[in-house]
């Protein structure tokens, strides 16, 4: 598909409302950088140690499969910076959750860079970012 600026704009608005997210900003919500900074604190950040699996592009952002894999992690956090509520989900792993893997289905308000963070037992934070295109749904 060819994405012109006009398509992109219609797409973003339509999908925004189509999945039940508002067209107006919620001033009380912290922005994505704040959410990310709060999780990282002053821990050193690495770009290895975590994989974030989501499609490159989806027709609509109603139900997008995401898999986060962070071997050894204590906790993972998923952030969708273009959503009205940036933090989407966080998962704490108990001792039995030996793979430190989680799959879920999320809402996305538009095309964006999804961020996954993992807190490791050695005090570091692993970080992975992936872009996803969210197009308007056709009949398919």
């Amino acid at each position: 598909m060819r994405l012109t600026r006009r398509t992109m704009m219609t797409t973003a608005c339509a999908t925004w409302a189509g999945i039940g997210l508002p067209a107006r900003a919620q001033p009380a919500e912290p922005d994505a950088d704040e959410v990310i900074a709060a999780f990282i604190g002053d821990a050193p950040v690495r770009s290895d140690g975590i994989t974030l699996d989501l499609p490159e592009s989806v027709e609509d952002g109603y139900r997008v499969r995401v898999e986060v894999d962070a071997p050894g992690a204590e906790e993972v956090l998923l952030i969708a910076p273009a959503n009205p509520v940036k933090a989407v989900v966080s998962v704490q792993f108990g001792a039995m959750a030996v793979t430190h893997r989680v799959v879920t289905r999320i809402r996305l308000a538009g095309p964006q860079q999804v961020v996954a963070l993992a807190r490791m037992p050695d005090g570091t934070v692993c970080r992975k970012t992936q872009h996803i295109d969210v197009l308007i749904g056709g009949c398919g």
């Binding site: 598909m1 060819r2 006009r6 398509t7 219609t10 797409t11 339509a14 409302a17 189509g18 999945i19 039940g20 609509d60 197009l135 308007i136 749904g137 056709g138 009949c139």
Partner: peptide
């Protein structure tokens, strides 16, 4: 839900679309 389409060299490609809102 609907869209308009145009031919490209490879396929009929979507140009623009719309969908009812919740």
């Amino acid at each position: 839900v609907g869209a308009t389409y145009e031919p490209t060299a490879e396929k009929i490609a979507r140009v623009d679309g719309f969908i009812s809102q919740v």
